[in-house]
Design a protein around this nucleic acid. Structure first.
Lengths: 190, 190
DNA sequence: CGCCCTTCCGAACGATCGTTAGCCTCCACA
DNA sequence: TGTGGAGGCTAACGATCGTTCGGAAGGGCG
């Protein structure tokens, strides 16, 4: 992929995140690259291609981040690492993450179905951590692991709305983890 | 406000939630009411008016729900009630909640600023619960209340993406609360 | 009855949408 | 040195966008 083509994808990610897919015109994209809108079609076949590309890049980034989490070791550590991994992607590729979380739904046809499947698979990998933790007894045996996974996924999926790009997200992930693990009950709360 | 005018607002909420603000045309709105698109302008001055109206309705609904939470009593109960209240609005007015959470950003000018202020105020009311809980000693005194509030807000703000309209949300809110309060640590986890 | 106000229609407005086409330039490589 | 493909230009396409306008129903009220 040529450098120019990559610039186009970057601009698409930025503009789709900022103004939304339908709020971004082909003219906007062309202007971001300093060219005429017709010239874009030397690089793409349609505007929808760009959405698909950015959304796919997001899916790949989140899956790759999760791949970096070891498959064994204490579950609590792996949950912490998974949160760290996800939030790191959000902070380092905020535009792509935003498209992955919010703009993907404007995909159409097979691409939409393929994306949804990848997204479901990602969430399932996340959920498995909590289920395994309960089954192995590393988490409370009466844990509602589905709710726990949902809570964790909500936290990281919402992060794109407020996280500043380039932030140091590990401490944040650790605070989330600590809260999920220990809860917030007072030492002498009934 | 006439019945017809109210139908228009309902259709706007539904379509904005389903297809996005920029993905919904005035023609789509007219079709939903079985009229010509020009006829809509007997009721509104612009498409942007509808977005403002739905977004404002969402803000009012969430604030009103929080108003129903007592100002005293055990903080844990009030946090549970706040989660219940929020999720109830999401389940009962999913379209409006979706616009409140996701589509508001296409508001422009003063309306956007006014909405952001209302949204910030809502989140602050939420945060205050956790801060107060820590200060009163009903939550752990070393609690990171900002993170706790963020986790709770993330959970409820993300709910519009998966919650089925009309669900019984109180048990769900209670599961969230229980997890936030007690955590998921195993009884003999180091 | 006569008037007005609300509501909708039908047609049209100019602007902008995503996309296509033909042509030109320039550089890599045979 | 000749050639081809990549990448850009300008111009235009038909479609659709949000909005405007004049007129026509129709019901409520004097």
């Amino acid at each position: 992929m040529s450098a120019r083509r990559n610039e186009l994808t970057r601009a698409a990610a930025r503009l789709f995140a900022e103004k939304g897919y339908h709020g971004t015109s082909v003219g906007d994209l062309a202007e971001a690259l300093g060219m005429q809108k017709g010239s874009l079609y030397s690089h793409i076949e349609s505007k929808a291609d760009l959405l698909w590309e950015v959304a796919s890049e997001g899916a790949a980034a989140f899956h790759a981040a999760l791949d970096g989490v070891p498959e064994d070791g204490p579950v609590l550590d792996r949950i912490r690492d998974a949160l760290r991994a996800h939030l790191r992607v959000v902070a380092e590729q905020l535009d792509v993450a935003t498209v992955f979380v919010r703009e993907w739904r404007y995909l159409e046809g097979e691409r939409r179905e393929a994306f949804v499947a990848e997204r479901r698979r990602y969430e399932e990998r996340f959920r498995a951590l909590f289920r395994e933790g309960r089954e192995l007894g590393e988490l409370r045996t009466d844990l509602d692991d589905g709710t726990a996974a949902l809570l964790a996924l909500s936290a990281v999926n919402w992060a794109y709305t407020w996280l500043r790009p380039g932030s140091d997200t590990d401490p944040l992930a650790d605070r989330f983890t600590a809260l999920l693990v220990d809860g917030m009950r007072g030492y002498n709360t009934p």
